[in-house]
Design a protein around this nucleic acid. Structure first.
Lengths: 246, 246
DNA sequence: ATTACTAAGGGACGAGTAG
DNA sequence: TCTACTCGTCCCTTAGTAA
């Protein structure tokens, strides 16, 4: 993947990085094996061995002066670090897009959702903060895989649109967190994060997290401007993918 | 330096990177120890051990579903990678500035330099390409440390201003490569790349590399618009630092 | 002070295998 | 299939020491 020279371990990596960060790409640095050993938290002997290895693998060039060495990265040594850097960079960029994926089956809710959606205390905020008046009723998606159930549990830590709670004459109603998402119907149950799903239609929706929920973490409630079931032609038991974006 | 959890090796690093690049910061990925083993070029047993270690160190979170695991980076795991990334990034930035440093002593040249500087075939090009008419005569700097002698040998691979060779009725004259540099007189001979020199005065000059040189790699020839020795009050035997910038 | 060899101990790795 | 245990082997690390 990164380095197919067999003998490339973390110590080699650390030493190369240290050389690079001290100008070792263009200059022969005066570094001793004792200095290096302190840096990598190993003995002088080990540091010496690492330097010998790096030289053998043509990742550094050493020139002896008296007892000390002048050490410089070779082009190959620099390229090794650059390769690792590019891979890490790409990975960090991937992770910058905070997409969370759920997969589950459409189930029939208990009618609770429709009740909540009908309350003016929520509807006004939905309109102001989400930009639409939600279809009265939530789509319930049942998560099967433990992975998604865990992700659902972690959802509360992610950025969301906050709907305040309120009270009427009877009782108080808790806050609701809304997560911007897209929902997609999938053909078969073979979808994983790594495969490409055969998708049909996509809808822009919001996933809800209620302060006072009776639901377990295996159930997701979704709202949208229209009747999602109709728009996407969904029946109970159909598989859907929900992608949440920050 | 990077990671003081003792048991953090290159395999741990590779696995974390793979998870990150596949969205494992926000999702529980379905990855098996066999997949990982192929990725890191080790046995399934070793991959399994790595995953156990990473979980123990709280760098990943695993949730079992049937026999497989869903795996996600913890915040700490992500931070570990980010730390390494930031260090690498900083190192790459340092290396982007291609400064090369030489240290040596002023010596008296053989008068060759003055002769070459007087040739109109060179003087016209110096004026056009360097922006000044060089003082007739080169400053010769003797490199003592093998590190600098080696750097001098590598100089030919670095970007330079090219002065074409020419011929007159008698003979041909080779090309000359010019490297933009600053020269600084230093107080004592204690200067290394890592320490801060006590410098006196600085001059903008060019280091020359001649196609047909009789000099060994331990001698550097420097030209400038004025008499460098006088401007910097240099005597033979004085120490100077020459910094070359791209 | 350096670098680096040798010998010995311990930890990493993989084959076999259980659950 | 999966994960992960045991255990044998080998490599990595270090102390001692030479140059």
């Amino acid at each position: 993947m990164v380095k197919d020279h067999e003998n490339f371990n973390f110590l080699h990596f650390l030493i190369l990085v240290h050389l690079l960060s001290n100008g070792g790409k263009n200059n022969y640095l005066e570094v001793t094996s004792s200095q290096m050993s302190r840096l990598i938290n190993r003995s002088q002997q080990t540091a010496s061995k690492v330097l010998i290895d790096l030289e053998r693998e043509n990742l550094i060039e050493r020139v002896k002066n008296n007892k000390k060495f002048g050490i410089k990265l070779t082009d190959e040594g620099y390229q090794s670090l650059k390769d690792i850097y590019e891979i890490l960079k790409k990975s960090m960029e991937v992770s910058a897009d905070k997409q969370i994926i759920f997969k589950g089956k459409i189930v029939t809710g208990m009618g609770e959702g429709a009740y909540y959606m009908s309350l003016e205390g929520y509807r006004k905020q939905f309109y102001n903060k989400l930009g639409y008046k939600p279809f009265p009723g939530t789509l319930n998606v049942k998560l099967i895989d433990a992975r998604y159930i865990n992700s659902r549990r972690d959802l509360i830590n992610h950025p969301s649109i906050h709907i305040d709670g309120f009270r009427n004459s009877d009782r108080t109603f808790g806050w609701v967190k809304c997560y911007t998402a897209t929902i997609t119907a999938v053909a078969r149950s073979s979808y994983t994060l790594n495969s490409t799903p055969q998708h049909y239609k996509e809808g822009n929706v919001h996933v809800l997290l209620l302060e006072r929920t009776h639901h377990d973490n295996s159930l997701i409630e979704v709202i949208g401007p229209h009747n999602i079931k109709e728009t996407l032609k969904l029946k109970d038991g159909d598989n859907v993918v929900i992608k949440i974006r920050e």
